[in-house]
Nucleic acid binder design. Structure first.
Length: 724
DNA sequence: GAGCACTGC
């Protein structure tokens, strides 16, 4: 980087909208504990505020920490700021993300992912090395950021804790897009809100006619989006401009579009397995006389910046993975987006000039079907790991933790139940010794439980790779071409056969080992239709897990002896973590889960156990996915004997007692309310009020997805009955 | 006889 370029970037920052507020911003941070800073993208708040605070002397007694929900953002922003501050990245300015710690003793301005700061809090609850903590992109409502918000709020509810070990009180800045800033301020004790004007151009939004209030589960939206793209292309005057439409499965359609030979229309679908050179093309300006059209999933909403987008086509839908605690399953479903999400999509057209947004849905759909805000992740995800983290931080009352938006109580109770089943907490909800070990692993607690069991029996070499393989994206490639597909399937079956042919977990272990010991691992992957990129990250994860385990084994670590059949050791370890995911075959290909829900499930066709059902009785599985049917994926047959002693644990749980530690740290008044509510729940009689509440609830989205899950189960049952 | 958003430790 030449000297003049450095000065340019420094100079440029003076033209950012935030620059004229520099003095007032510094004062605002000095004047109060919490501050909400709001401003649209392009205001410069992420790169400039930490520099202003650094200049103002906030790093003299403590560091400035800035969180981001995504790794790439943490890294690129840190690079940018290091450049502006004319220092080497990793010295005064650094970043930390998983697998990549670019900080040193000198680092005073540290960008990191929200998950990393949460880990730091686990080791140092008072965040004693920081003078300022800045949470960025809070409006995205990522799970970790939401938890951090609550933790920071709680830190100041006990002043002794907040000032412990520090000479100057900690300052907290919360940065968010303009939405919901009043709510944030109210949550943080009515703290001041500092607004920075953005630098965006107007976007005109137009409603369509294709999708109305009746289409809450749209199926035809892809076609409509393509039609709209062609309309826009032919009716809007051609200039060198881009077009972005979100959330479309365009791979099947792009040829149709090209067949209609719209001259110069270039469609670039964004796919994970896309070659790197093609990926680069997306960010390049199109050749002269060619209009670029980018088809994107919702990755474009947050993770991608493509310059010069002028038109947006908004399908109005998103594919979302929702956890449903009532049926104990994750459901991947297509749902309408929220109004705030639609506004964000539209905003992508106004970054460099005025733009237009074409919505395929009607104004009525907007009004009747689209919620104001997206349901935050904390309300639609499994909370098992989060609850364990909170408990390990000494927050026993996880129900009345200060959530910006509280998850439903049954989500929390389900998490407590699971933690009890994995021996992470005791009957009264207190963290066990095992739980203290478990929280150290960046894995689902069930998987962690299996790893710890294996480690206590000195066979971690079998479980660590499996845990790593299950925490990265799917490693098996399934090509679209029928011939290639057959070839890939054949090779994958052969890999399964090498592992005994009856255990999907063992297949993962085999793939891991074969690739790792290969001389040319990337070539091995190519030949075996395995994602090299995914496997590489599995290698990193395995190394990380192994390091954590080694560190924990220096401490007081359980040692057990195994007196069973050695060949069954692997599967018995798995049972310790997966006995909650146990199913027994009922009729034909249908299995019935034994977790209390008694759901009817089938083995996914990608499993090596598919079509072998007749030989099976009891199985454990890694996950359930509801699509056209209710499928279990990554399956392993087990003996009833191995889970017999564990199964009662599934039913003997008393959630009331599990959440009882709560009572030790709350006021009598709060306790009274809590007990009254609990007592009411135990009442078998139904009051009129209850009926009303139930009716109200029926309109909730959660209930809609419940109904969908039940519907799919019934449908599957019917298909099964027909087959018999 | 299948899927098919996206993050994060």
């Amino acid at each position: 980087m030449s000297k003049s370029a450095r000065w340019d970037s420094k100079d440029e920052s003076k033209h950012l909208p935030i620059y004229q507020h520099k003095h007032n911003l510094i004062q605002a941070v000095k004047n109060s504990t919490f501050l909400v800073v709001t401003g649209e993208t392009g205001s410069g708040k992420t790169t400039q505020l930490p520099q202003y605070l650094h200049e103002a002397g906030f790093c003299k007694k403590g560091n400035i920490g800035i969180t981001q929900p995504r790794r790439v953002a943490a890294i690129t922003v840190a690079q940018r700021v290091a450049q502006e501050m004319q220092c080497t990245l990793g010295r005064e300015v650094g970043y930390q993300v998983r697998f990549d710690d670019c900080t040193s003793q000198d680092t005073v301005v540290k960008y990191m992912t929200d998950g990393c700061l949460l880990r730091e809090i686990l080791a140092d609850p008072g965040l004693s090395q920081y003078s300022v903590v800045i949470l960025d992109e809070v409006h995205e409502r990522s799970l970790n950021t939401d938890i951090l918000l609550g933790l920071l709020k709680k830190l100041f509810s006990s002043p002794a804790k907040a000032s412990k070990g520090r000479s100057r009180p900690l300052k907290v800045v919360v940065m968010s897009a303009t939405l919901e800033t009043d709510k944030l301020s109210a949550f943080l004790g009515n703290c001041p809100v500092f607004t920075i004007p953005g630098r965006t151009f107007p976007v005109t939004c137009m409603f369509g006619t294709a999708v109305g209030p009746k289409d809450t589960e749209s199926t035809g939206y892809v076609k409509e989006v393509v039609k709209m793209a062609l309309d826009v292309h032919s009716s809007e005057m051609f200039r060198a401009c881009d077009l972005l439409f979100e959330k479309a499965e365009a791979i099947d359609y792009r040829y149709d579009v090209q067949d209609q030979t719209v001259e110069g229309l270039l469609i670039l679908p964004l796919y994970g397995s896309m070659p790197t050179d093609q990926q680069r093309q997306i960010f390049q300006p199109p050749p002269p006389g060619i209009r670029k059209c980018v088809v994107a999933t919702n990755i474009a909403a947050t993770s991608l910046t493509i310059n010069g987008i002028k038109y947006i086509i908004d399908s109005g839908f998103v594919k979302q993975l929702n956890h449903n605690s009532r049926v104990g399953m994750d459901i991947l479903e297509v749902v309408p987006i929220s109004k705030s999400e639609a506004q964000q999509r539209a905003g992508r057209a106004g970054r460099t000039s005025a733009g237009k947004c074409f919505r395929i849905y009607t104004k009525e759909f907007w009004e009747k079907c689209m919620p104001e805000y997206t349901v935050p992740e904390i309300q639609r995800t499994s909370l098992t790991a989060v609850v364990l983290t909170l408990k390990c931080l000494g927050i026993h009352d996880v129900i009345r933790f200060p959530y910006l938006d509280s998850p439903e109580e049954r989500f929390i109770l389900e998490a407590l139940k699971q933690l009890f089943q994995f021996d992470a907490i005791d009957r009264r909800g207190r963290v066990t010794q095992l739980g203290e070990l478990m929280v150290e692993f960046p894995l689902h607690p069930g998987l962690t439980r299996a790893v710890l069991k294996a480690a206590s029996l000195s066979c971690q070499d079998m479980l660590l790779p499996v845990a790593a393989m299950l925490s990265v994206e799917n490693i098996f490639i399934r090509p679209g071409h029928p011939d290639k597909q057959k070839e890939a399937d054949k090779i994958h079956r052969a890999l399964a056969a090498k592992s005994g042919g009856m255990n999907d977990f063992a297949t993962l272990l085999t793939v891991f080992q074969l690739c790792k010991s290969s001389d040319r691992p990337s070539e091995w992957c190519r030949q075996n239709w395995i994602h090299w990129r995914a496997l590489k990250s599995a290698f990193s994860v395995e190394t990380q897990l192994r390091e954590i385990l080694l560190r924990l084994q220096q401490r007081d670590f359980p040692v057990e002896t195994f007196d069973g059949n050695k060949g069954e050791l692997f599967r018995q370890c798995l049972c310790t973590g997966y006995f909650t995911n146990v199913a027994r075959r009922s009729v034909g290909k249908v299995f019935c889960t034994m977790d209390g829900h008694g759901s009817m499930v089938q083995i996914h066709p990608s499993s090596s156990l598919f079509d072998q059902e007749a030989e099976l009785n009891w199985v454990i599985f890694h996950d359930v996915l509801v699509t056209s049917r209710v499928y279990i994926r990554t399956v392993c047959p087990i003996r009833y004997d191995w889970v017999k002693d564990l199964l009662p644990k599934l039913h003997e749980v008393d959630v009331y007692e599990l959440s009882s530690v709560a009572r030790e740290e709350v006021t009598d008044e709060e306790m009274m309310k809590w007990e009254t509510r609990e007592a009411a729940k135990r009442q078998p009689e139904v009051s009129a009020e209850d009926v009303m509440k139930k009716l109200e609830k029926r309109n909730n989205e959660a209930t809609v997805s419940d109904a969908r899950a039940r519907y799919l189960q019934r449908k599957q049952q019917r298909q099964q009955n027909k087959a018999l």
